[in-house]
């Protein structure tokens, strides 16, 4: 497909003294713990297949040690795969030589790091223009372009400070501005907000979303936090022991978790904030009520419906009625545990 930006195919990564000798065992399905115990190799990535569409925000989620950092570092080849292919804009990353790879990193894909990775001996404006000066752009132009990005992440006035003089949240704004300044159309973010306090993290998520509305970058965003994943992700892939166990939209994952691991992940989530009315929509003529857009989340829909005192709402899309939702269906959708086996206990 033409709007695929990043395609990762059959990707395996094994850490150890002789990874290629282990590849057959991994392909035969040896578990991560067996591989480590019996052969002393660490399974980093296990047959990963992901396609990221242009201008989408792809979230990759998993617990610590599940291989998230390993995966994202394959996209700009900070880590070499044991086998598999990575294609960006139709171009095979793995066939690039050193110079081509360097140019790819300079202009195509930039990165934001969990621990910020700022240069402590350089001022904020020098940090933001780092990618530009690496490309050989002269200082004056680099600073001018950087100052725009410093402004767009809300750091104007801090151009001549040093990173150590800024709080964690501000430092990551610098990290974000530095990544945006190169105009790369792929943004790789490895737990970029995980080191920040909850309130600041939420701020940064909003900053990212509002920038994305204007910039339409292809973003690959790593997190171990489901709330963050649901808030940001157009698409979410869940990683366990190096393998993708489910991939889909936030609604897909909440309505149809692939296995117990995912169910466990989502059990504490506030579904009313994620599910949209379209997910519980049907067509019953008995329902009368206010009109609601199909992409409104249930939390908001419930408020509208209960204020109007009706038994449901009419769902509209592009100004036309496409169905109805009942009050009880909405309540059930957010109350019901998504696993059928214990749904009985909820209803009793």
């Amino acid at each position: 497909m033409s709007d695929t930006k990043v395609a990762i195919k059959d990707l395996y990564k094994i850490f150890g003294s002789n990874p290629s000798s282990m590849i057959d065992k991994v392909k035969d399905g040896i578990s991560k713990s067996d591989l480590l115990e019996k052969f002393g190799h660490v399974l980093g990535l296990d047959n990963v297949n992901i396609e990221v569409k242009k201008s989408q925000l792809q979230v990759i989620m998993g617990l610590s040690g599940s291989g998230k950092s390993t995966l994202i570092r394959h996209i700009n080849r900070l880590i070499e795969p044991t086998s598999g292919s990575i294609v960006v804009d139709g171009e095979d990353i793995l066939s690039m030589n050193q110079t081509e790879l360097r140019n790819f990193r300079r202009s195509k894909a930039s990165m934001v790091f969990q621990k910020f990775g700022l240069l402590p001996h350089r001022k904020i404006v020098e940090n933001v223009s780092y990618g530009l000066t690496i490309q050989g752009i002269n200082k004056k132009e680099a600073y001018e372009r950087s100052n725009q990005w410093i402004e767009s992440v809300g750091l104007n006035g801090f151009e001549n400070h040093y990173p150590a003089q800024l709080s964690g949240g501000m430092q990551q704004r610098v990290g974000l501005a530095r990544a945006l300044a190169t105009d790369a159309d792929i943004l790789l973010m490895d737990e970029a907000f995980s080191a920040l306090d909850p309130l600041i993290r939420s701020d940064m998520q909003d900053v990212l979303l509002s920038l994305q509305e204007k910039l339409h970058k292809t973003i690959i965003f790593i997190t171990h936090d489901l709330d963050e994943a649901l808030k940001l992700g157009d698409n979410i892939a869940i990683l366990r022991d190096g393998a993708v166990i489910q991939s889909g939209t936030a609604e897909d994952i909440i309505l149809h978790p692939a296995d117990d691991y995912v169910t466990d992940f989502i059990k504490d989530i506030n579904k009313a904030r994620v599910l949209k009315v379209s997910s519980v929509m049907n067509n019953e003529n008995s329902i009368k009520g206010p009109e609601i857009q199909d992409n409104v989340i249930i939390e908001d829909a419930l408020q509208t419906v209960s204020k109007s005192g009706s038994n449901g709402a009419i769902v509209i899309k592009d100004g036309k009625k496409i169905g109805t939702v009942s009050l009880t269906d909405m309540i059930m959708a957010i109350a019901r545990s998504t696993k059928n086996t214990d749904s009985d206990t909820v209803y009793r």
Partner: peptide
């Protein structure tokens, strides 16, 4: 020298001499 800073430099496409003179020696 901090591994994270070195990785950032690498990720932005710094060449060997850019890493050495711009990051390693100053730090």
């Amino acid at each position: 020298v901090d591994k994270d800073v070195m990785e950032a430099s690498e990720a932005f496409g710094a060449s060997y001499s850019q890493k050495l003179l711009g990051v390693q020696i100053p730090l």
